[in-house]
Amino acid sequence: MQDFASSLDRSIGLIISGDAELWAIVLLSLRVSLSAVVIAAVIGMPLGAALAVARFPGRQVLIVLLNALMGLPPVVVGLLLYLMLSNAGPLGMLQLLYTPTAMILAQVVLVMPIIAALSRQVVETLDREYSEQLRSFGLSRLGSVPTLLWDGRFSLLTAFLAGFGRAIAEVGAVMIVGGNINHVTRVMTTTIALETSKGNLALALALGTILIVLAIAVNAATSLMGGTARRLAHA
């Protein structure tokens, strides 16, 4: 117990003193996860919206598939991407394995289905209200996607933050394709896993604290956004 207390004490010291190694890890985590979520949103939101408004055979199957992909196990994504990126794999010549780019790629694969599926729900709900009016304006089904995305912007922010929450907290995928290399691909979650097994509890606890604070902040932002959205848009 004394061990835990002293570790906690030293971890707080690490955070407050602005330990360079600690903050480098935090910054890399943010860089990887934010890049991944932005890319996933740019692809996932229009995709989800298109799926919400388009009518074609097999649409329902696609929606079920997309919803199922929300629960994709990170280690499996890591493994598959590892096979693709390794020297023998089809994308081996890109030499991306064990780079932050590979980690971003892994998180894009992980987060994109979440953002697309949530966007699909948001846009479908909005479309029920808008579709007649937008048709009257002369817009085609796909032509109404930009309008629906913009008018659903506050609710879509929730999808974005949900995606970020998933990315920043995930270990398996970035561990496998990043390799957890010191000063190169070591992010908060992989460092916590490694340092805990090494018995360096101070650094692990410091990163854990920052991660929890981030998670709370994201959740608080999500519910705050929801309230602001209703107030601003009177939705």
């Binding site: 209200e129 808008y130 007649e132 009016q133 009257s136 002369g138 309008t147 008018d151 939705a235």
Partner: peptide, 19 residues
Amino acid sequence: RAARIRQAMVFQRPVLLRR
């Protein structure tokens, strides 16, 4: 389409954009 966009419609319950 050209003829359709020379028309407009107002509904029983107004559908206003969130703007």
